[in-house]
Amino acid sequence: MKIQYLPHTADIRMKVEASTLQELFIAGTRGMNTILKKGFCNQFDESKKKARIEIQSSDYTCLLIDFLSEVLSFSYVDKSIYCKVCILKFSKYKIIAEVLGNPIDYFEEEIKAVTYHEADVQKRNDNQWETCIIFDI
């Protein structure tokens, strides 16, 4: 998986690539967590916090954005970063996952929202999945 941060006038533009669609969800979460606090997820062997996420959307692009939005909301409410994504069920435009993480004292960046702008989940000719994601900060 590959995560890149690209220029944007006011917000954060992130490009994620992965070898499977499910891995793209994990890459997106990882990229988002790096914005919230770089290196945080490398500090722990065990997870103290857990949340269950169940999302259904109209397409895979919306599913990914809605999923990340939900992870972000739990991060703020629980004051935690959810580093691990265990996908329990993944079907057409639906995901059930358990996310695991740890409490955090402060976030390095406050992401206001994960936006749909420029997001477009695509499978490339080389069978890699990719999308761009803009975070409103």
Binding site: C62, S69, S73, Y116
Partner: peptide, 25 residues
């Protein structure tokens, strides 16, 4: 969160009203 919740809701509701927009946001 209010904005996130309702943009998500409208994404689905738009079809009902036959609205198409050039950008999901």
């Amino acid at each position: 969160q209010v904005a996130t919740d309702y943009i998500r809701l409208m994404m689905t509701a738009m079809t009902k009203y036959e609205i198409k927009v050039p950008d999901k946001e």
